[in-house]
Design a protein around this nucleic acid. Structure first.
Lengths: 210, 210
DNA sequence: AATACTTTTTTACCTAAGTTAAAAAATCAT
DNA sequence: ATGATTTTTTAACTTAGGTAAAAAAGTATT
């Protein structure tokens, strides 16, 4: 296919800062929406949750680094991407009320090929791999949650393969704005192009035509 | 096995047939390779397995049809594809010692957008969705197997997205033959092209150049 | 062996999208 | 507000890969 956006170098950079004020996360609420936990599982989960905040531009997980956490986003936006031959490819954006992790890195505890950074100030609640693993072993209901969560991820990825296959650049863009109206104003044209696998120039042309 | 070679060939389009002589499938062996089942789970699983054979060219599951089974291939080859605007796109091939199903159709019991057909005479062992669901509920170890199986599917799909993004037609072909040397002789040029998302002509050109 | 499919290769031509470069517009920092 | 940086748009040119159609090679059927 060979697509993606040329890599540009940005000079604006904010430093990282961890929020000190702890607030309640919707992590468990959304776990239960995927699959209802038993009372015991929920009680075992709650004390393991770790609030973590990221500043806009801050790296959450980078290449070669093992992703040790499953995150839930309470607020904010994150991009999950990689470089290849001077191009940038964005695999996915994750925003509020969604779980995310680096799929293969987390599940196999192997180094990530991808980079995850915050596109906005982002508040998450996370659980460590070791805890995740324990909860899966101890609680059948938590294992069921995990199964459903990762099955959903597999289905989402399958859908993306299908889209990439049969849609041209214009169709890809239309589908994207259709399915992500809430993200449209929050993602730059360049990032949108990197997600769609087209050049920024092509996306600009598409936009101007409509 | 009853059917001889010549007889088998002449009987081109016979409908499906359940083997009368029951042979052991490797279904449980490979379940245990993914994740070790408890004794009880395995005993509960075994009687639910249904042997199913498909003739070359036979449709296993089609568009609009809910995929009601999780299959394990003991022998043979299957393609999983769809049509879009006069083109054919093959999402994946599945061959011996692999599990397969129509991911979203099976997990949500919704109509499939895809078609699955046998590319060779294929022997499978399968389990019904209702049984699968029961086993997941009853046995924590079976749920763990499912979680790992579908997580693997998600990872495979992610890898495919990455490949489609950053590889041109030639690279895609090289990666394909590298990773599927055992399939190369069994899949036609046309099907290979449909899998790579390129035209048959392009693939022919690539081949001749090397 | 002869006929008829089917699959693969080759050729000529065409189109969607990439590349480069530069200008215009929008955004941010002081 | 001012200048600096980043983002988006526009234009000219290039290219990878698509389409169609015909030739060649391979398989199957009588």
């Amino acid at each position: 296919m060979v697509v993606g956006n040329k890599l540009g170098i940005s000079k604006r950079n904010t430093t990282q800062r961890i929020y000190n004020k702890k607030e309640m996360s919707d992590f468990t609420t959304y776990v239960n929406k995927v699959s209802q936990l038993s009372k015991e599982a929920e009680e075992d989960l709650l004390p393991r949750l770790i609030p973590k905040s990221f500043r806009k531009g801050q790296v959450i997980n980078t290449e070669g680094q093992i992703c040790k956490k499953l995150f839930f986003i309470d607020k904010g936006l994150v991009k999950h991407y990689y470089h290849h031959k001077d191009r940038v490819f964005i695999l996915r954006f994750f925003s509020e009320t969604n779980f995310f992790t680096v799929l293969d890195s987390f599940t196999n505890q192997t180094p990530s090929q991808f980079i995850t950074i915050a596109l906005e100030d982002t508040e998450t609640s996370s659980i460590d791999y070791a805890d995740f693993d324990q909860l899966c072993r101890r609680h059948h209901t938590f294992e069921t949650f995990s199964r459903k969560l990762f099955t959903m991820a597999a289905v989402v990825n399958l859908k993306r393969i299908k889209e990439m296959f049969d849609a041209d650049a214009t169709e890809l863009y239309k589908e994207f704005i259709n399915e992500n109206p809430h993200l449209l104003q929050r993602i730059s044209l360049g990032d949108t192009a990197s997600y769609l696998g087209i050049s920024q120039v092509t996306l600009s042309r598409i936009r101007s035509k409509k």
